[in-house]
Design a protein around this nucleic acid. Structure first.
Lengths: 131, 131
DNA sequence: ATGCTTGCAAACAGTTTGCATCTAA
DNA sequence: TTAGATGCAAACTGTTTGCAAGCAT
């Protein structure tokens, strides 16, 4: 008896919506995108499927201030968030696996991974603030 | 006309409560501690003062899943969170200022700082899970 | 006296959940 | 056929806010 994964229309819509964006959308962003395809879909279904797809490792989620943001990239990588507008982009910093081992040794924790979030002001908001 | 900072009894209680703990308490933890000293203090006052003290750089706050955690340490440093019990401890990883510059150059963001959060299972929870 | 601060309750954002109904396999 | 999935509404957690009253300066 294997776990059943049903390919519902709604689940497919949610997955496609995440894959069609490159800007780390929030659950609400995805809800609105999917809503444009299916006016009857509920927020609960979107949230449930985002969590489900995260569990299936089909998408990942970035814990940003103001709520989770979803990502089509599956490899561990750092992010940069704009403190003005909330935009999230990928950072080109390589993931350091060794630091996980070092922290595991020094703390006794069983380390799964780590996440790094840079905070700053994006180019567009810098423009706005200077004017 | 300088900004006025009033030393209210409640504000002092909140600051002392954070300083009297070494375990990265949540706002609710602080509320409960302060409540033991002053049964009349309200949650809103605790939240307001935590934010105020953060703004004054008297305390810092760690964005952990499940809510903000407060810290008496003022220097930037990484944290480790237990995915089982939610415990947060300091990580002995040195803060890398250069990576902020590197990300600033490659993204055009004005980087203020970055935070690193390790996720894993603490020694106590490992024990529990093995029994 | 002034205006920052408090306490209360209500509002709020983001997210989860109970339950009857529906549907993919 | 039936267990997983949906839609709706309500619940929930963590946090913020409007307002009248209170208190530090």
């Amino acid at each position: 008896m294997t776990v059943q994964r049903r390919n519902t229309r709604q689940r497919t819509l949610v997955l496609d919506a995440v894959r069609n964006r490159r800007d780390h959308p929030s659950a609400e962003d995805i809800y609105l995108d999917v809503r444009a395809q299916d006016a009857k879909i509920s927020r609960a279904t979107v949230y449930r499927n985002l969590r489900f797809l995260e569990g299936e490792h089909a998408i990942t989620c970035v814990k940003a201030p103001g709520g989770d943001r979803f990502d089509l990239r599956l490899d561990a990588h750092a992010h940069v968030v704009c403190t003005e507008c909330g935009a999230v982009i990928d950072a080109s910093v390589p993931y350091d696996h060794e630091v996980d081992d070092a922290v595991a040794r020094s703390t006794g924790f069983l380390i799964a991974d780590h996440s790094t979030l840079f905070e700053g002001i994006c180019p567009a908001c810098q423009q706005t603030l200077n004017s």
